[in-house]
Computed example of a mutant assay.
Amino acid sequence: MTQKNNPLHGITLQTIVTDLVDHYGWEELGARINIRCFTHDPSIKSSLKFLRKTQWAREKVEYLYLKTNKLPLPKPKPVNDSDHQPCDDTDLNAHIWGK
Rank of each mutant, 00 (worst) to 15 (best):
L66I: 09
A57H: 03
R36T: 14
S46T: 11
D41C: 01
D88H: 05
R52E: 09
H84M: 14
Y65M: 09
V17I: 12
E62C: 12
L51C: 06
G98C: 11
G25T: 11
D89S: 14
Y65G: 04
W97I: 07
E28Y: 02
G30Q: 05
H40E: 14
T2H: 04
I11F: 01
G10R: 06
P74F: 03
D83M: 11
H23Q: 13
L73K: 05
T68D: 12
V17D: 00
I16S: 02
T54Q: 12
D41F: 02
Q14K: 14
E27V: 15
L92P: 01
L48I: 08
S47V: 02
D88W: 02
P7F: 01
T54V: 13
K67C: 06
L66K: 01
E27M: 11
T90D: 15
L20S: 03
T39L: 08
P7M: 01
D88E: 11
L92G: 02
S46P: 01
F50C: 05
G98R: 14
I44R: 01
L8N: 08
D41A: 10
T15F: 01
T18Q: 10
K4L: 15
K4C: 08
K75Y: 00
T90G: 11
N6E: 15
V61R: 02
T54D: 15
G98D: 10
C87S: 12
T2I: 09
L29Q: 05
F38A: 05
C37A: 12
V21A: 04
H23R: 13
T2E: 06
D41V: 04
K49D: 10
W56S: 15
D88Q: 06
E27D: 05
L71G: 09
K70W: 00
T18L: 07
D41T: 11
S82K: 15
Q55P: 06
A31R: 15
N93C: 11
V21C: 06
L73P: 00
M1G: 12
H84L: 15
